[in-house]
Computed example of a mutant assay.
Amino acid sequence: MIKRKLLGQHFLNSKSIAEFIVKEAEISKNDVVFEIGTGPGILIPLMCENAQKVISVDTDEKLIKKARSNFSQFNNLTLKSGDGFKQKDTFSIFVSNLPYSKSKDAIEWLAQNSFSHGIIMVQKEFAEKLLATSKNRRAVSIIATYTLDIKKISVVGKNNFSPPPKVDSVVLKISKKTTLDKKLISLINDLFSYRRKTVKNILKQFNKQSTIEKRIDDLSGDEIVNLAKQILKK
């Protein structure tokens, strides 16, 4: 359990919240559901009842072995041990109670993948960061809101997890708008290290020219992505 705490992983133990998550995921018999973070498998039977196929991945091989034993009755379930962000599966719905330490990586991974929609549970602070506007934005805010429609649908108290985290969580419904490739994502992250500089001076760093005197904080999300695209253009 100490290891899980270090990873920032807290297992959902509320059946009613699990039911709410799966209901909001709107899973049909045509859907392939991809879950990162199998944990004790509280969502698995609920997802398998509705989906064509469920793929669930966890880094902890012991949890996967336990899930194989507990859920052997589901022939539409595939369980894998390893890094979910390195899997190449095709899916239509993404569901995850994201490990707090991996939330940023997850958003960047989702930005690169094609799918229909999903439900993610994240730390309340991280949800606020994703939905931040103006000077409170981070690179991950731009990447998230450019590639995803994000809707906050519920707050989940810390007592619904084992071990309980220090903060509450938020359930977000996401729908895919578009994708960004890895190079663009990396560059958007880099641009935020220049956020105090003007666009004109930022572009100088990349041997490009501009007369724009605005700073990163003065640009819209679309303008920041377009700036990154302009820099990458040969």
Results as ranks from 00 to 15, higher is better:
Asp83Ala: 07
Asp218Ala: 14
Asn159Met: 06
Ser103Met: 12
Gln209His: 15
Ile231Arg: 01
Thr133Gln: 15
Asn70Leu: 12
Asn75Tyr: 08
Phe71Ser: 02
Asn76Trp: 11
Asn50His: 11
Ile2Trp: 10
Asp105Arg: 12
Phe206Thr: 03
Gln52Tyr: 10
Asp58Arg: 00
Ser96Ile: 03
Glu61Ile: 11
Lys229Trp: 13
Phe115Asp: 03
Ser186Cys: 14
Lys233Ser: 10
Leu79Tyr: 00
Glu213Ala: 14
Asp190Glu: 15
Phe34Thr: 03
Glu223Leu: 04
Val33Cys: 08
Leu6Ala: 10
Val171Asp: 02
Arg195Trp: 05
Val22Asp: 01
Asp168Lys: 02
Leu131Ser: 08
Thr145Arg: 11
Ile231Ala: 12
Ser193Val: 12
Glu26Phe: 13
Pro40Ala: 15
Val32Gln: 15
Ser56Arg: 00
Asp168Trp: 00
Lys62Ser: 11
Asp105Asn: 15
Ser193Ala: 15
Asp58Gln: 04
Glu223Gly: 04
Asp190Cys: 14
Lys129Leu: 14
Thr38Phe: 06
Lys104Ala: 14
Glu125Lys: 07
Lys65Asn: 13
Gly8Val: 06
Lys177Arg: 05
Lys3Ala: 11
Lys29Gln: 05
Val171Lys: 04
Val122Gly: 03
Arg4Phe: 12
Ser162His: 09
Glu128Thr: 07
Met1His: 15
Val57Leu: 00
Leu172Ala: 01
Lys173Phe: 08
Val155Arg: 04
Val170Met: 01
Asp218His: 14
Phe91Thr: 07
Ile188Gly: 03
Glu24Trp: 03
Glu49Val: 14
Ser154Lys: 12
Ala132Ile: 03
Asn201Asp: 06
Lys208Ala: 09
Asp105Leu: 10
Asn201Tyr: 06
Ile174Trp: 02
Ala139His: 05
Gly37Asp: 00
Leu203Val: 05
Leu187Gln: 06
Lys229Tyr: 15
Arg195Phe: 05
Leu43His: 03
Asp217Pro: 10
Ser154Glu: 14
Arg137Asn: 11
Gly41Ser: 05
Ala144Leu: 07
Gln9Tyr: 01
Leu219Ala: 08
Lys152Glu: 13
Thr133Asn: 10
Leu98Pro: 11
Lys183Gly: 12
Gly41Lys: 01
Ala139Trp: 15
Ser220Ile: 04
Glu26Ile: 07
Val225Ala: 04
Ile174Thr: 02
Val54Lys: 08
Glu213Thr: 14
Lys151Met: 08
His10Trp: 07
Ile143Met: 02
Ile55Val: 05
Lys29Thr: 03
Gln87Asn: 10
Ile17Leu: 01
Glu108Ala: 15
Gln205Lys: 07
Ala144Val: 04
Ser103Phe: 02
Lys183Pro: 09
Lys177Gln: 01
Ser16Phe: 10
Lys104Cys: 10
Lys62Leu: 11
Ile36Pro: 06
Val170Tyr: 02
Leu43Val: 00
Asp217Phe: 15
Phe192Trp: 06
Leu77Cys: 04
Leu227Phe: 12
Ile185Phe: 11
Pro45Lys: 07
Thr133Tyr: 12
Val225Gly: 08
Ser101Tyr: 06
Ser210Asn: 05
Phe85Gly: 10
Ala18Gly: 03
Pro45Ala: 04
Pro99Ile: 02
Leu187Asp: 04
Thr198Ser: 07
